[in-house]
Design a binder for these strands. Structure first.
Lengths: 128, 128
DNA sequence: GTGGGGTTTGACATCATGTCAAGGTCAAGA
DNA sequence: TCTTGACCTTGACATGATGTCAAACCCCAC
């Protein structure tokens, strides 16, 4: 299977497939005589796994660990769970930070007339 | 005032002060004979404004607009308010996305034994 | 005048991804 | 068989906001 088809089937862009290969997240694809990369169904599964992990907010290095755990038949689910919980905590931390910013902006905006006059608590706050 | 003192007083790193100058977010600082940048109190206020806007999640290009509005005495507060509300919407969008990921992870983790056994709904979901 | 600390520029790195360019390859139709 | 368009290759440059490092220069106090 060509990289284009692998990309299509896995939802990972060609660019990222090559990138993942370069950083060793996926093994180097065998090449045909033409130099084209050739992918197997197993490669597709690996790519889909990566795409799913990315969609859940895992950074590359944690995906690397998850892939190792996936391939480790004697893995302890505790390890996977710990990674997931740590990731959930990090996501929450970020989410809370964003929400705090949003809340501040909303509060300031509510106190802003929002008309043609120049006075504005938002600007005042920024200039503070 | 040296860049180090300006950095200290504004909370913006020296690195970022130089960067903001390069991208035109702040005017080029006048130089002393030595070539050292020389900052005025007005420059400090501008740097603090930028730091505050960053803390509220505004990207550089919007900070540029906010700086223009700040310096425009005939500005309409409606413009500032619109920027703030748009930013708030964007922050919420991101926050909601993070929260959805977190929720999914938590749900999966709750269904994972988290012991020495290998079976794990988190891995199953990723491999799906 | 010497030493230690501040400043200068430039380069390289992050992280995950997009885009572009120049060139080689494949497959289908004329 | 030749052509054409779609595909693939690598490499480079870009994003956004920031850190770090290095080599060279400057400043001040002793």
């Amino acid at each position: 299977m060509n990289i284009g088809q692998a990309s299509e089937a896995s939802g990972v862009s060609q660019r990222m497939i090559r990138h993942y290969e370069k950083i060793g997240l996926i093994p180097e694809a065998p090449r045909r005589d033409s130099g084209y990369r050739d992918y197997s169904p197993a490669d597709l599964n690996r790519l889909r796994f990566i795409a799913n992990a990315r969609d859940l907010g895992f950074p590359i290095e944690e995906i690397r660990m998850l892939l190792d755990l996936w391939n480790d038949r004697s893995r302890a689910s505790a390890e996977v769970k710990a990674l997931a919980m740590a990731r959930a905590g990090e996501l929450q931390r970020k989410s809370v930070a964003l929400e705090a910013m949003r809340r501040t902006l909303i509060d300031l905006a509510e106190r802003c007339h929002g008309d043609t006059r120049p006075d504005c608590p938002i600007i005042e706050r920024l200039a503070q």
